[in-house]
Design a binder for these strands. Structure first.
Lengths: 210, 210
DNA sequence: TAGATTGTTAATCGATTAACAATC
DNA sequence: TAGATTGTTAATCGATTAACAATC
């Protein structure tokens, strides 16, 4: 299985949705599913389902369909295989606390290894079982522990200031809640942007104008 | 100006980013900008900038470029014109608190008018200056106050259970943090999904496999 | 007028959908 | 074998990019 030479971003972004629907089916005891059944449930087309799965080598059997457990295994492997990604949180405000709670309690494949803030008020405090460190210690921490992912819950200016350091220290992935456009300034890193402001603005536009 | 018959979703989703960059330029005293300058700053192409702006009638002057203040005005009008959207929050856990804080303090164009939860522990408490109400009162509240937007910070099962009621009560826009796929089950409503789980999974895939 | 840069049409590119041969 | 459904190739669709005439 698995040829996955350059799978396109739209396909990758659909993987979690497949994972959600197939997990559900598995929980509900569904054993076998066809591309058209899955497509109907998910609101997409059978063609797309088959094209997507075939990006990773194809998980089905001609004439039969897909075994739910095989599908779940394959997609889980794609999404979660290997070591947990050591992750640091930067910014322990309200949003940082909610997000790190989610990451440690509900997400799979990540391990929160440190949290940083610049405020005296936060440093020394506790978050997800970790002691909040002064962000000025971030460089020495990264040199020693080599985290792979950074979660940015800080304002745009701070993110802009910190980004070159983090990239130089070998951070490969950013879960970016700041409004700074990381992807514009760096290549060779992976960024998932969660721009709450952008999201609200486009929602507003559509509610008002559609 | 403004012809905007059916502007495509990719264009709409780019509006907030234009807004951010143009706001910045305005703050920094930039008076005039060409499509190629703006494109370079934003990491896109001059063609796309001009195509995008022309979806809304075109904001520039041939031979000259775009006036930053005109651009900012036009895009602000598109994004924020008219009444603030009356908005309700459902789910006042950690995430709900962070998100409603963002909506009331940092976002434009929205007005949080009520917050609901189902937990005894939350009901009667305070959030963003509002008293948290029992979610069982949501129907009568909506009949009286006609909110336009609902922010869903509740688990998937609750969202699934509540959605038909909310849609029937006339909610037009959903800012959906639950993992329930609203868009699959309803049309005629506008949904902005913030699927944190999906976001983390696709980040993980890319960090591991790229 | 000449240079610059838009607005807009045309070409390209990529993603989605349809079709069908392979095969269980 | 016949029916079903995949894997995969071909056609379509839409979005992005390029080109160029309009015009400031």
């Amino acid at each position: 299985m698995a040829v996955q030479n350059k799978v396109s971003l739209p396909v990758i972004k659909r993987l979690p949705k497949y994972y959600r629907y197939i997990s559900d089916m598995h929980k509900n005891g569904v054993v076998k599913v066809s591309s058209s059944e899955l497509a109907k449930a998910m609101g997409t087309t059978a063609s797309q389902v088959r094209q997507d799965f075939n990006c990773f080598g194809g998980f089905g059997q001609q004439g039969i369909g897909y075994h739910v457990d095989v599908l779940l295994d394959e997609i889980s492997t794609l999404l979660f295989s290997g070591e947990k990604l050591p992750t640091i949180l930067i910014g322990t405000g309200k949003l940082g606390r909610a997000i790190s709670g989610f990451l440690t309690k509900e997400a799979r494949g990540y391990s929160l290894v440190a949290a940083f803030d610049k405020s005296e008020h936060e440093i020394g405090g506790e978050i997800c079982g970790l002691t909040i460190q002064d962000v000025s210690h971030i460089e020495s921490f990264c040199r020693e522990h080599h985290p792979a992912v950074a979660v940015l819950c800080i304002p745009r200016s701070s993110a802009h200031a910190l980004a070159p350091t983090l990239v130089a220290l070998g951070i490969k992935g950013f879960w970016n809640f700041s409004h700074y456009d990381l992807s514009a300034d760096y290549s060779d890193i992976t960024v998932e942007n969660v721009h709450l402001g952008d999201s609200l603005m486009s929602l507003g536009y559509r509610v008002r104008n559609e």
